[in-house]
Every structure is written in structure tokens, then in C-alpha cells.
């Protein structure tokens, strides 16, 4: 299996603090890879470098053999990396449908003059975009919620809408930042099988940041563990669970003794 994304000695410093310390990281095509670690381990910082929100202090990111280090977020999205946010960041006053339509921005062409004139081409494109957006909402379990303002949606539905919006960018690689945070066990179980479906039906590669070990161990092909910005373990869920440094990082030194 070819590697979809390769991060080479990626590093991020905030002032004197090293948030991510020369981490090597690869994501094979059509894999589900999880990134775990205690709070403050640098997971989200790592995510933000991959998506262009932060500029790496040093190191390199290759996506499909293209160097994306230092590219702005919209360019990275256009190349095929979609994401959700840890603390939900929907466009709150827009409807569910409009949120998904914004996700399609880079895939639509409608220019200024043609939009004002309402040319048949633009109308057709808009009609198709609306159809596709409704289809994505259905796929994510939001049937009939199209016209609802996103801030009025239930919490779980907001999480689903974030995924629908990310899917609208037509990603090859989907980055999910703690998608099950705040979900009850039933919702979490549903979401876990949904992530599996994303890979199998949509042929996506998925990178997951997750705290719920049941989700991580159930769905991942590979797990990478960060602690204090360093990669301390990497391997299959079974290997990582038995790794002493991982147990130490989560439970403290006494637990390993």
C-alpha cells in the first residue's frame, strides 16, 4: 500500500515550547490511523500543521508526493485533505445545507459575472451542488435537517454535520479531531461503525484523534502515540496497548513497575 501522506521530522515550537518534536509519521492509503496521547501531547498541533493552520517550524509534509508544507489551508483542502474540528466550528447561522455547500467551494466554478447574470451553467451547477449536498446529509444521518440552522441542531447532529461538510470538500484524506467527544456510548458506537463505512464506501483514508480507547482500538489499522510532542509508540492497536511507554504516559510510572 502506498503512503498517502508522509510527515518527515515535523516540528513546531511556540516560543520556547516544543509542541511537536521532530515527528515522523506516515498514513497508508485507505487506512484508518489514530493519533492518541494524553492532553497537551501535541495531537491537535500536529493536525493543524497537516491542514495548514499552523506553519511547521521545520520538517516537511508530503501529500500524494506533493510538498504541502507551508501551503495555506484552502490550498491543502483543495488538494484533498478535509477536516473536522475538536470544538465544533460550524457556520452557526447558516442552515445545514448551506454549511455543506460552503464545503464544496473549491469544487464549484461559479464566477462573479456569471452568478449575477444567472447563466444556465451556473444554475445547473447550483442545482447539482444542492442535490449532492442533500445526498451527503442523508449519508451522514441528517435526513430532513437540510433547512435547519446549524446552531439549533442537537449536539450529535452538529458533529455529523461537520463530517458532512468535510466530505463535501471531496477529500482523499479525512482528518477527524475527537469526533466522539461528548457523545453517549450509543452515539459513539454508531459513529465508530460510520467511520468504517467512510473508508469502505467512500474509499477514504482517515486520520483520527481520539480519547475513547474503545473507538481507537475497534476501528484503527494503526495507532500512533504522542507524549510531550514526541512519538513514543507506533503499531497495531494490540502492540500499542502492550507498550510500556504508552502505559507509563497514560497511567504514570508506578503502573509499569
Amino acid at each position: 500500500m502506498a503512503d498517502l501522506l508522509v510527515a518527515d521530522r515535523l516540528r513546531k515550537e511556540f516560543g520556547g515550547l516544543v509542541a511537536v518534536n521532530d515527528v515522523d509519521f506516515t498514513i497508508p492509503e485507505r487506512a484508518i490511523v489514530s493519533l492518541i496521547g494524553p492532553n497537551g501531547a501535541g495531537k491537535t498541533t500536529f493536525f493543524n500543521m497537516l491542514t495548514g493552520v499552523y506553519r511547521a517550524t521545520s520538517g516537511q509534509i508530503l501529500f500524494r508526493d506533493v510538498d504541502v508544507t507551508g501551503k495555506p489551508p484552502h490550498a491543502i483542502t483543495e488538494l484533498g485533505i478535509g477536516r473536522t474540528f475538536q470544538n465544533i466550528r460550524l457556520f452557526q447561522h447558516m442552515t445545514a445545507l448551506e454549511n455543506v455547500l460552503v464545503g464544496m467551494h473549491a469544487r464549484l466554478k461559479g464566477g462573479i459575472i456569471r452568478s449575477i447574470l444567472g447563466t444556465p451553467g451556473v444554475r445547473r451547477e447550483e442545482r447539482r451542488a444542492h442535490e449532492r449536498a442533500r445526498e451527503l446529509l442523508r449519508f451522514c444521518g441528517l435526513r430532513g435537517r437540510d433547512g435547519e440552522v446549524s446552531r439549533n441542531l442537537a449536539y450529535g447532529d452538529q458533529r455529523r454535520l461537520e463530517v458532512a461538510r468535510a466530505l463535501a470538500t471531496e477529500p482523499l484524506l479525512l482528518l477527524l479531531d475527537e469526533p466522539t467527544a461528548g457523545m453517549n456510548p450509543q452515539e459513539t458506537a454508531d459513529f465508530t461503525s460510520f467511520v468504517g463505512r467512510l473508508r469502505d464506501e467512500r474509499e477514504l483514508t482517515i486520520l483520527l484523534i481520539e480519547h475513547d480507547m474503545k473507538v481507537v482500538m475497534g476501528v484503527s489499522d494503526r495507532v500512533t502515540v504522542l507524549d510531550y510532542g514526541e512519538k513514543i509508540a507506533e503499531g497495531t492497536p494490540d502492540e500499542v496497548q502492550r507498550d510500556e511507554r504508552v502505559i507509563e504516559a497514560y497511567l504514570g510510572r508506578a503502573a509499569t513497575a
Binding site: V53, P73, H74, F85, R89, H105, S115, T169
Partner: peptide
């Protein structure tokens, strides 16, 4: 239009808008 949606998305949340390809 597509542009109008992008404007409103920026007004609502700049970071999210950029991450959605705007």
C-alpha cells in the same frame, strides 16, 4: 451565489471557512 456563501462563511468562522477550501 457561491461567492456569497463564502463571504457569510468567513463572517461566521474564518478558520473553518479556510479549512473548507475558501
Amino acid at each position: 451565489s457561491r461567492l456569497g456563501r463564502a463571504w457569510i462563511a468567513i463572517r461566521e468562522d474564518e478558520t473553518a471557512a479556510a479549512a473548507m477550501g475558501v
